[in-house]
Design a protein around this nucleic acid. Structure first.
Lengths: 100, 100
DNA sequence: CACTAATTAGCAGTAAATAG
DNA sequence: CTATTTACTGCTAATTAGTG
């Protein structure tokens, strides 16, 4: 029903080819790098998202789609990222207000 | 059914009013142009709407207009609220029937 | 015009990896 | 362990398409 196991194209090829691109590091003992590697966008993605956020914290669908295409992520992930980013921003501001 | 219990029963988290989320800052007048931002009615508004809904889930235009005036909302918003409320009500009942 | 049904985007809360 | 980051769930307000 939901497409959930779809993430960056870079990490999808962990099991197969695994040619050129390699993810970050795996300092841990080589456990099964298989199964449930989720999470964490790379610096470039974060940077782009952050830049975009500064100019518009609530971009339209088209923009998100475009951004998703550029960064190799799903539109869903972009939307979620902005949601979380907004929440963080808000929480910070609230904390500020508390402090007076 | 008349209590303030609208939340699902799955998670017994009990979140009292509190909220704090006041996005709508007196939309009373104006709000022309493209007001893309606006979310959530306050407790008083919900309470009034809910009370009204109980006695009549499909009020006439005049009533809606009056209600809108009372609560500082647009008639359009009142109409939409009732539409959504009816939909929710129906969905709930259908789910109940499913459960038998 | 008012209604329904379906869909959209947003938010609060929270789960779940992961980094420190 | 705690804090942060990605992701999901449940609900709400609003929009659109289609009916009468």
């Amino acid at each position: 029903m939901f497409a959930k196991e779809q993430h960056q194209a870079a990490s999808v090829k962990v099991e197969l080819g695994l040619s050129g691109l390699d993810l970050d590091i795996h300092p841990i003992t080589n456990v099964k790098s298989h199964g449930k590697n989720k999470r964490r966008f790379n610096d470039e993605q974060i940077r782009s998202l952050e830049v975009m956020f500064e100019s518009d914290s609530r971009p339209e669908s088209v923009i998100k789609q475009q951004l998703a295409n550029e960064l190799g992520l799903q539109p869903r992930q972009i939307a979620i990222w902005f949601q979380n980013r907004r929440a963080r921003s808000k929480a910070k501001q609230i904390e500020r207000d508390y402090n007076v």
